[in-house]
Design a protein around this nucleic acid. Sequence first.
DNA 1: CAACTGACGATAG
DNA 2: CCTATCGCCAGTT
Length: 108
Amino acid sequence: MTLSESIIACLKQIPCGMVASYGQIATLAGNPRAARQVVRLLHTSTKKYSLPWHRVVNSKGTISLKPGSGYEMQRSMLESEGIEFTKTGRIDFNRYQWKPSLIKELED
DNA sequence: CAACTGACGATAG
DNA sequence: CCTATCGCCAGTT
């Protein structure tokens, strides 16, 4: 399993109505430093693997795309999933950041 | 093989 | 809050 494959796998696990940061995905995939790969994969494999690219934002909780270059579309898709934005255009991580398998080995 | 490219992230000022 | 820099990894050229 290569890092890229792991990243793809993680991306596909992001549930509807939740978001994750590039760094978070990279960390889950095994390389905390591979945020750039996430970016690259979204560029190269979004169509191929039907990745939920719109559920990925930067560490600040804001959309990284520029208005006119996808920003509007991404925001629109997120709002469609029930995600709300603050007036400054940020997503409240406390409410929408995805937490993988939050419920695992909870017993001892 | 070296340089370049990314929708990044952390840090410093 | 904002800009500037450096570090990171992998795919392209």
